[in-house]
Amino acid sequence: MPASYQAPMVGDKAKDKHASQSVSSNMTTETARVEHLLQSKGSDAIAIAETDTIATAVGILRDKRIGALIVVDASHALAGILSERDIVRKLAETPGQTLPQTVAENMTRDVVTCEPEDTLIKVLRRMSEGHFRHMPVVKGGKLMGMITIGDVINFRLNELEHEALQLKQLIVG
């Protein structure tokens, strides 16, 4: 036993208990949401018209170094999404005939979207379960941006690094 230790005595006052960790101290006060990710990433989403060709889409994907395009109809409303996977599937089905086809013929129409208020954990789970990597962000029917599974993971990794640094500073003083 260290020499500085003094056992509690009968007349000692009860000290306030302090815990370095508890459920409440380990929970962040604000859960990360899609809107936080969009604030750091930006809300740019590259869109293409339904009437454009796959050749045009491939050129945009290559030039912008992205994996999917938002597809909009004549009124600029969300009509679908065209991913590299959609294009590869069509190339296998119609070799040599794919590039002149329209985006509308090849896009995914039933697009799973999220809202800015959705938590990143919920969005990540939906992407994993649905086996897709891109998700448009929509609020009130208006396109707000697009996030990828990589965006979500990188955002969370940055959060974890920040939390680790804060803990280190608490320990070191």
Rank of each mutant, 00 (worst) to 15 (best):
L99F: 15
L99W: 08
Q97I: 00
R126D: 12
P100Y: 10
L120F: 04
D118S: 14
M135R: 06
N106T: 14
G96A: 07
T108R: 02
V111R: 06
P136I: 02
T102P: 09
M127H: 10
V123A: 12
K122P: 00
T102S: 15
V123Y: 01
E93S: 13
G96D: 09
V111L: 06
V137L: 04
S128Y: 07
H131V: 03
C114D: 10
V103Y: 08
H131A: 14
P100R: 13
T113C: 08
T102I: 06
I121N: 12
V137A: 03
R125A: 10
R125I: 09
V112W: 00
G141M: 07
V137H: 06
H131K: 15
G141S: 06
V103C: 11
G130E: 06
P136L: 02
Q97H: 13
K122L: 09
V103Q: 08
L99H: 10
E129A: 14
E93Y: 00
T98P: 05
E115Y: 00
E115A: 15
L124G: 15
V123S: 06
T119E: 10
G130T: 01
P116I: 02
L124R: 03
E105D: 15
L99P: 03
V112M: 11
M127E: 08
L124S: 14
T108F: 02
Q97P: 00
V111M: 04
V103I: 15
T119D: 11
F132S: 07
T108A: 04
G140F: 02
R125C: 01
T108K: 00
V112K: 11
T94S: 13
M135P: 04
R126N: 11
Q101D: 07
Q101L: 14
P100S: 11
E105M: 12
I121D: 15
P95G: 10
R109P: 01
P136C: 06
G96R: 10
T102V: 09
E117R: 14
C114I: 05
E115V: 06
D118W: 02
E105F: 04
T94H: 14
A104N: 08
K139S: 15
L120M: 07
V123E: 02
V111I: 11
